[in-house]
């Protein structure tokens, strides 16, 4: 195997193909990252910081944030756990849209302008990109996000037909990143609205054939801060990094509440 790269580099086991200007050559570019900072110990108001970085075509916004934190400014603060779009820790407002930093490739954004990164809106900011998620999880707890079944537990698992499972499949995908709730203009106003994420997770149990407490959850969401505050602006559906049809789920819960009371 002939190689044109540095000799002490171990040969890659990954086949990168014959095309391009050599094995492993990844396009690199300059990108300006503009982050809205907040640190109550340093300043009363938030401020913007800008860094110009050399990044690669395979890098995500999270990699740019890591580069800043690890190599330039260690005080930059953000949440991330798995970094692979599963844990839902790093939802943030990138170029004015709620997304996961670990699922947003830099090359997919407009790199000719600075890429703005802010904390998600509507929840109190603690530091930089970290918000207090407690109000969000309080709403989540209120809809009782666990299976409630009054019949005695069977010796094996509770069986369910594929059709019954399909009924709530979409809403099982939620990773509780808060991208939807913090993109909702009704939630921004006063934070009283239950928010799309809580309704999605209620939907997951309301339409589960094994669950017996759907009625209780519908009663909770029939509150004046419940589903009726939804204005169907579809911000939540646009924001969801898992592609859940959030607004549709909310509409289904509304329909269920109406048909229940008829």
């Amino acid at each position: 195997m002939s190689t044109a790269t540095v000799e002490n580099e171990p040969a890659s086991t990954v086949d990168l193909g014959e095309s391009g200007d050599g094995a492993g050559a990844i396009e690199s570019f300059e990108v300006t990252l503009k982050v809205r900072r907040y640190d109550p110990e340093r300043a009363e108001d938030a401020w913007w910081d800008e860094w110009t970085l050399t990044m690669y075509g395979t890098d995500r916004v999270l990699d740019a944030l890591h580069k800043v934190k690890w190599e330039i400014d260690g005080s930059l603060t953000f949440r991330r756990s798995c970094a692979h779009g599963i844990c839902g820790s790093d939802a943030m407002r990138i170029n004015g849209r709620n997304r996961l930093a670990c699922k947003t490739l830099l090359k997919d954004l407009d790199t000719s302008k600075p890429i703005t990164v802010e904390a998600i809106k509507g929840l109190p900011i603690e530091k930089d990109l970290i918000v207090d998620m407690e109000p969000f999880f309080q709403s989540y707890r209120e809809i009782m996000p666990f299976l409630i079944n009054n019949s005695p537990a069977p010796t094996a698992e509770r069986l369910q037909s594929p059709e019954d499972r399909e009924r709530f499949d979409d809403t099982t995908k939620c990773i509780l990143c808060a991208a939807c709730t913090s993109s909702c203009p009704v939630f921004w106003t006063d934070g009283q609205y239950f928010g799309p994420a809580a309704i999605v997770n209620a939907h997951r149990f309301i339409f589960d054939s094994r669950d017996d407490a759907g009625d209780m959850r519908l009663e909770v969401l029939n509150d004046k801060e419940g589903v009726w505050r939804c204005r169907t602006t579809f911000n939540c559906t646009d924001a969801c990094p898992r592609g859940i049809e959030v607004t549709k789920a909310i509409q289904e819960v509304k329909t269920a509440i109406i048909t229940r009371s008829l």
């Binding site: 109190p124 207090d132 407690e134 109000p135 309080q138 006063d190 934070g191 009283q192 009663e219 029939n222 509150d223 004046k224 801060e225 419940g226 009726w228 505050r229 509440i257 109406i258 009371s261």
Partner: peptide
């Protein structure tokens, strides 16, 4: 929780529906 997020006592009515 920031008190501003605490939901005022829920009213059991179908008015909003």
């Amino acid at each position: 929780i920031d008190p501003k997020y605490l939901r005022s006592r829920t009213s059991r009515s179908n008015f909003e529906m």
